[in-house]
Amino acid sequence: MKSLDEIGLEHRTDKASNHHDFLRFYDRRLSALRNHSFTLLEIGVYRGGSVRTWSEYFPNATIVGLDITEECVKYAGGNIHVRIGDATHTDFLFDVIQEFGVPTVIVDDGSHRWDHQITTLQVLFPILRKGGVYIVEDLDTSFNGHLKSAPFDGLSPISAFDYLVKLSRCVTGDNALDDERPHDLFIADNAPWVGSVEFGRRTAVLSKKTDRQAGSF
């Protein structure tokens, strides 16, 4: 049986080991779902390599790709569905979820802007199915080297990476936080649902618990 990275290399996704090398990091976190029936939602279709990779790796899943570029509809077929719209618009996201069901896996490979990454997490993580996985890619845009070439900060005063670090402080510190307060209400409300925050090269994987167990913040 081919690994997730082997499939990604065949479909020429930049997630494979010859580019970003995300897939080997994801494989051991997603392999338990390989033969399950569920919905995977990916923000950002680009040239279709990623949705084709998910389609082959998860043959029983419903793969839903979102993009603002109309021509991305050509990548739909089989268990791949493509919807055109702006993933920063809550109404659009809820329409997609109403159509395809609550996702078990969400991959944010969209604009890579801090404000978009944070807002999308705030909207979609609470909806993510219990026991699911939420992935935020290209977190290297949170660092100064990328800000020299593009305004990845958008309207956010905090980078997406630093925001996830603040979330992970609540997850790891739990009751030992003492009088340290969470960064915002989203983190206060949702950190008890986060099982883990794992950082890899340019990416992060959040797991959602099946039951809420945590200290109070």
Rank of each mutant, 00 (worst) to 15 (best):
L93N: 12
T88F: 04
H116G: 06
D91K: 12
D115Y: 00
V107R: 00
V123L: 13
G85P: 05
D86F: 04
D115R: 00
P103M: 05
F92K: 07
H116I: 02
D91S: 14
I97C: 13
V107N: 12
E99H: 10
A87H: 08
Q98Y: 08
F125M: 11
D108S: 04
T90P: 09
I97M: 11
D91R: 11
P103D: 09
Q122V: 05
F92I: 09
T88Y: 05
T120D: 09
H89P: 02
A87W: 06
F92L: 06
V96W: 12
T119H: 12
V107E: 08
V96T: 13
H116Y: 06
E99G: 06
I97P: 12
D109S: 00
I106F: 00
S111H: 00
F92E: 06
H89K: 15
W114R: 00
T104W: 03
G101C: 07
L124G: 08
H116W: 04
F100L: 01
D95S: 15
Q122H: 10
T120P: 06
T90H: 11
G101I: 08
T119D: 15
D109P: 03
F92P: 08
L121H: 05
R113H: 15
V102N: 04
G101D: 12
T88N: 14
S111V: 01
D86A: 05
D95F: 04
F92N: 07
P126W: 07
I118F: 00
H112W: 04
T90Y: 10
T90L: 09
G85L: 03
G85W: 05
R113V: 03
V123W: 08
G101M: 09
L121R: 03
I118S: 03
H112N: 01
F125W: 08
V123K: 13
I118L: 02
V123A: 11
V105Q: 07
T120V: 14
D95M: 11
P126N: 08
P103N: 07
F125E: 06
E99P: 08
D108Q: 03
A87V: 04
T88Q: 10
D109G: 01
T104D: 12
G85Q: 03
L93Y: 08
S111N: 00
D95Y: 09
H112F: 02
T88D: 10
V105F: 01
E99Y: 10
